[in-house]
Simulated assay, not measured.
Amino acid sequence: MERQRSLNTEYAAWYSREFTQKVCNEFFESTETISGEEIATLTPCRQLNLMVIKSLFESWQEQMDLLSRIPFFDFKDKKVISALEDFMNALSRAIKIRQEDFKPLLERSMEKTLKLSVEPFSFMEEELQEQALKSSPDFKGLRKYLKWHAASWQPAVDFLSESPESPAWREKLLQGFDSHFSEEASPEKLLAPISAIMPIDMDQLILWESDTEAHTARPFNEPNEDNLEKAVPADEEAGEAPSDERSLSIDPALAWARFESEEHAYMKGSIEHIREGMGINQRIMFTKRLFQGNPDLMDQALEELDRTDSFFDAVSLMNSSFVNTLKWDVHSDEVQELLQLVFRKFDEASD
């Protein structure tokens, strides 16, 4: 029976975090910022480098989308469009990113690269779905950043470019992978340049399954996890509180202090409603990863957060109503980005 492979997301997240730390420690040892040219050659894996650039470009698009919502200007004016294009071109030649800002960018890109190598069909299905939800999707532009398995997903991109409203693109994607997918482009071969920097345990990275079999890979445990027992408080050892619930709470004071610091000064800017500050990719990410893929649930949560009177009340609501119920990882990028938006809503009120 043919077995299907899937990504061990726990191991992928751990590896991406450790890999990012290693690469950044080495690169930023003698410099404070990284440029666009340096990102393009950061690692021997071209796909990973392009994935970082893709994430950076998408951040630009989100900011431009927010800018275009300002009601006082005509963003369809030809001169404005031309000026914005010149502005974006100038920015692309002036990329300078500090280590603390670059690390989450590289970490997310590493996770995406691992998924593209192990689950290319699933990765592209999600990527094309996200593009389809954008106001100005750029399907053909994906070829600039995504090189692996291009022959397999290109038919779906060609179809979407001509018929962006048709749901038949998924069938084209499936047909493309059936016709062009080659096992020669295995995760082991694709990820070899990355593994040369920091070895990848393929037995941990890949979970194998079939129609009747459960996952055969053992559960992933981070290295030296046996030492964590020493850090468990005595009351938890006595059974008063499960150890896996220790971090399931957001500390509002620490969060406020972090966003108020100079490090996060660029996150400031008053918004009346949390949704106003959300980019397209954030809406997709929050819906999928924080609200179980349910946009109505997210809308209800945002409305409840908007009705709170302070940042601390909002965080208290998040802890009581969402963190445990929806099993949020309070240290995840998604939760932190949502917190940043809540901070922006209440920042001016604190002055």
Rank of each mutant, 00 (worst) to 15 (best):
A40S: 09
A40Q: 02
A40C: 01
T41H: 09
T41N: 03
T41F: 10
L42Q: 05
L42K: 00
L42Y: 04
L42H: 04
L42D: 02
L42F: 04
T43Y: 03
T43E: 06
T43N: 05
T43H: 06
P44W: 04
P44F: 06
P44Q: 03
P44D: 02
C45T: 08
C45Q: 07
C45D: 12
R46N: 09
R46A: 10
R46K: 14
R46S: 10
Q47S: 15
L48H: 01
L48Y: 01
L48K: 00
L48G: 00
L48D: 02
L48A: 07
L48F: 12
N49F: 03
N49D: 13
N49H: 04
L50Q: 11
L50E: 13
L50F: 08
L50D: 12
M51N: 08
M51Y: 10
M51T: 15
M51S: 14
M51L: 14
M51K: 09
V52P: 07
V52L: 10
V52T: 05
V52D: 01
V52F: 08
V52S: 03
I53F: 01
I53P: 00
I53A: 06
I53D: 01
K54F: 12
K54T: 06
K54P: 04
K54G: 05
K54S: 13
K54C: 08
K54E: 13
S55Y: 04
S55N: 14
S55R: 14
L56I: 12
L56S: 01
L56P: 00
F57T: 08
F57A: 08
F57Y: 15
F57V: 12
F57D: 09
F57K: 10
E58H: 15
E58N: 15
S59F: 09
S59H: 11
S59I: 04
S59M: 11
W60H: 11
W60N: 03
W60R: 07
Q61I: 09
Q61Y: 04
Q61T: 05
Q61E: 15
Q61M: 13
Q61N: 12
Q61V: 07
E62Y: 05
E62N: 08
E62A: 07
Q63T: 11
M64N: 12
M64S: 11
M64P: 00
M64E: 13
M64D: 11
D65P: 02
D65W: 12
D65T: 14
D65N: 14
D65K: 06
D65V: 14
D65Y: 07
L66Y: 11
L66W: 00
L67E: 05
L67C: 06
L67D: 11
S68A: 10
S68K: 11
S68F: 03
S68G: 06
S68C: 06
S68W: 00
R69I: 06
R69C: 08
R69A: 09
R69F: 09
R69L: 07
R69Y: 07
